[in-house]
Simulated scan of single mutants.
Amino acid sequence: MQNGYYQATGAMVTQFNRLDVITNNLANVNTIGYKRDDVVIADFERIFKETRDILPLENNTKDAAKFLNRTIDRVPHINEEYTDFSEGGMKLTNNPLDLSLGKKDLFFLVETPNGVRMTKNGAFNLDNDGYLVSKEGYRVLPSNYEAQPAQTRGIVVPQGSELSIDKDGAIYVNNENIARLYIAQPREIRDVKKEGDNLFILSNLNDIRDNANSGSVAQGYTQISNVNPVVEMVSLIEANRLVDMYQKVMTSHMTDLNQEATSKLASIKA
């Protein structure tokens, strides 16, 4: 068994998965409020040991098998995929419906068909009924949304009125306070997961609190993606070169080494 071949194959698959993450980041470089993803690469042996320490798992593998499979155990794997919530730059738009949050652990709340979700995209609009909505048409939720009837949840802004929003998310129409945005702050940001459409989900809504004094809302600004295209392009080139290298290793094992082994075996005299 050519352990080196399997090791190179596993490493190539890992780089393919890494390429998927990188290309997705590059595709969203201009998406408002997008947070880049990244991966942690580790070998199978390390992942197994960490998992065994947590569960724990008994190691019933025979010593001979441990020695034989040692190189296979060192095959790289994606140990963890995570989201980088660091802040992106702020872009001035002068649109009173554009909002930006200045801290990485703060989100807006929106009502979706699948329930309450969080978003960093503060490029809002008004729908035909006057509700403040996201780009996808989801209603933006106020601080008292739980006390509102489910059918009418949201923030209604009269058409043609003068709208202003302060740094804590309080909404004023013609200098009269009509509502305050729910500024969601998860208890642990590592538990926040992406769901698609630039939305984030937390399995337990009780782990979210309303930060009434965040001081982080900026009106007339949007937060651009935190993807650095130069860094992502360098990573893309690196991953492509690694794939090419692993391909050459696999070819050497399957062609050159096998051919050499076959010719030598054929030359052995009984």
Rank of each mutant, 00 (worst) to 15 (best):
Q2R: 11
N3Q: 02
N3I: 00
Y5L: 11
Y6A: 03
Y6F: 05
Q7Y: 07
Q7K: 04
T9C: 06
A11I: 04
F16E: 14
R18E: 11
L19P: 01
L19A: 09
I22A: 02
N24L: 01
N25A: 08
N30C: 01
T31F: 02
T31D: 01
I32W: 04
Y34N: 06
R36I: 01
D38I: 05
V39P: 05
D43P: 00
E45S: 09
I47F: 04
I47K: 06
K49G: 01
T51I: 08
T51C: 14
I54N: 08
N59L: 03
A65I: 12
A65V: 07
F67Y: 07
R70Q: 13
T71K: 14
D73F: 03
P76E: 01
E80G: 01
E81F: 08
Y82N: 06
S86C: 05
G88A: 12
M90V: 04
K91C: 02
T93P: 07
N94D: 15
N94V: 09
N95A: 14
N95K: 15
P96H: 07
P96E: 04
D98A: 06
L101Y: 06
G102D: 09
D105N: 14
F107N: 08
F108L: 07
F108A: 10
E111P: 02
P113S: 15
N114W: 13
N114A: 14
V116P: 03
V116E: 15
T119G: 11
G122A: 08
A123D: 10
A123Q: 08
L126V: 09
L126W: 10
D127G: 02
N128D: 14
D129S: 12
L132A: 11
S134W: 02
S134E: 05
E136P: 02
G137E: 02
Y138D: 06
V140C: 03
L141W: 11
N144A: 05
N144M: 00
Q148D: 00
A150F: 14
Q151K: 13
I155N: 04
V156R: 09
I165N: 02
K167Y: 03
D168H: 15
G169H: 00
Y172K: 04
N174D: 12
E176D: 06
N177L: 11
I178P: 00
L181K: 10
I183H: 03
R187I: 05
R187F: 13
E188L: 11
D191N: 13
K194R: 11
K194I: 05
K194Y: 13
K194M: 06
G196D: 10
D197M: 06
F200R: 00
N204Q: 05
N211H: 12
N211I: 04
S214I: 06
S214P: 02
G215S: 07
S216G: 04
A218K: 13
Q219R: 10
G220S: 08
Y221M: 11
T222R: 08
I224M: 14
I224P: 03
S225L: 07
N228A: 00
P229R: 10
V231K: 13
V234R: 13
S235K: 14
L236E: 00
I237H: 06
I237N: 08
E238G: 09
E238W: 13
R241L: 07
R241Q: 12
V243Q: 07
M245A: 12
Y246T: 06
K248T: 08
K248L: 03
M250Y: 01
T251H: 11
T251V: 12
L257H: 12
Q259H: 02
E260C: 00
A261K: 15
S263H: 03
K264C: 01
S267F: 03
I268Q: 08
